[in-house]
């Protein structure tokens, strides 16, 4: 088999570049603990209202014992419920979201708060919001004719102004 010396050099360069990219990903995964969402937890999307975690009175933002915040949401045509969420800035926030009907996706623009919401599975994503302000929380997966209208409001407030009871 004939490989030109110049070509061989190029293959080494390419392999080094790929190794660099993969090295960064492995570093952030192993050392910085950055992973894509994916906890493989199942839920019966048809009976969320009867369940423990996603019944109506359990939804919303709650302070946790460790100082973090948990936001429990139901995604359903056409909104994320409850539709108005307040979270403190610079604090780890864990979203737990289940769909009551079809496939949805959620993204808070300009942040990495993003996950798919698949009926039958619970989506979990943890992030923190460094800048206070009002953010739209958009559905980014086609879910029906009203998909354009599916969004809710996320308000990031200064830590001292955040009230856990809200």
């Amino acid at each position: 088999m004939h490989i030109d010396p110049l070509e061989k050099k190029w293959i080494y360069v390419v392999l080094a570049a790929i190794a660099l990219f993969l090295g960064v990903i492995f570093y952030t995964a192993a050392v910085r603990n950055i992973h894509p969402p994916g906890h493989i937890e199942t839920v019966d999307s048809a009976s969320l209202h009867l369940g423990e975690e996603f019944a109506e009175d359990k939804l919303g933002a709650r302070a946790q014992a460790d100082g973090s915040v948990r936001v429990t949401l139901v995604a359903a045509r056409y909104g994320f419920y409850p539709r108005d969420i307040r979270v403190p800035e610079g604090t780890p926030v864990t979203f737990r979201i289940a769909s009551a009907d079809v496939l949805h996706g959620v993204h808070v623009p300009m942040t990495n708060m993003s996950t798919m919401i698949v009926p039958g599975y619970i989506s979990t994503v943890t992030t923190s919001f460094p800048k206070p302000g009002e953010y739209p929380m958009l559905c980014n997966e086609y879910c029906g004719m009203g998909h354009d209208h599916m969004w809710s409001k996320l308000t990031v407030v200064a830590r001292e102004r955040w009230n856990a009871a809200e």
């Binding site: 990219f21 993969l22 990903i25 492995f26 992973h35 969402p37 994916g38 906890h39 493989i40 993003s114």
Partner: peptide
């Protein structure tokens, strides 16, 4: 499926390696 809940982070990483290769 990086952002999907029905597959775990380990398999996503393994598919990610192949994606770069």
């Amino acid at each position: 499926l990086y952002m999907d809940p029905e597959q775990g982070a380990g398999f996503k990483l393994s598919h990610g390696v192949g994606t770069f290769l």
